[in-house]
Design a protein around this nucleic acid. Sequence first.
DNA 1: TTGACATGCAACCATTTAGTTGCATGCTTA
DNA 2: TAAGCATGCAACTAAATGGTTGCATGTCAA
Lengths: 107, 107
Amino acid sequence: MDFVFKALADPNRRKLLDRLHLNNGQTLKQLCRGAVMSRQAVTKHLVILNRADLVIPLWRGREKLHYLNPVPLYQISERWISKYEEARLRAFLDLKRALDEHRPRSL
Amino acid sequence: MDFVFKALADPNRRKLLDRLHLNNGQTLKQLCRGAVMSRQAVTKHLVILNRADLVIPLWRGREKLHYLNPVPLYQISERWISKYEEARLRAFLDLKRALDEHRPRSL
DNA sequence: TTGACATGCAACCATTTAGTTGCATGCTTA
DNA sequence: TAAGCATGCAACTAAATGGTTGCATGTCAA
């Protein structure tokens, strides 16, 4: 879970996930097309995405196809987001009550 | 959205959100209890959480109450995660098909 | 088998991040 | 009003991060 959030923190990596979302199973060369960084930079990002299990590589000859693995994203929404599911309403009510009770110095 | 992912990347900040989830509207001093870092470190984390709109401060006299704001989390699950909603099944089928077609060198 | 191509590995650099310490400011209450 | 408490601000340091370049390895195809 830690690796997943770290991996999602970078906009370039999220963009890579977007690209794979549009067209799954791309090679490194393909992913470099359209990226503003060097091939090695993309490689490093893919390593991080791989460490987070968000991207799974698959060798075909000398080509390495990268596949989006949706499972960690699923786990985020299921475990972590839903952890705050009930909090959404509650926190909102807390805020509202606090705003009514106290006169804020800022906000 | 960028600030939210960045804010969520750090385990200490996620723990702060957890603490607020359990007990909403805490002061800085309260949040420091149970944290293994200095007060200033907690302050900095709260600034980042504030920048991401995940935590909203509310002054009451000389005390600053910190409230969990669930909206950005809601937006993640609604906009970003659901963006991959359909991809979950599709990516899985892609992976399966790729595994059947090619003999992987690794995996 | 040899040249071209796809990828990996390693060293290096700049910036950001996470943390500390010290001091300043501003309510509250006695 | 003065003391104490809660928080803010600034400077500094160490480590992590994101990027580059150069070279190595392994596979395909002529």
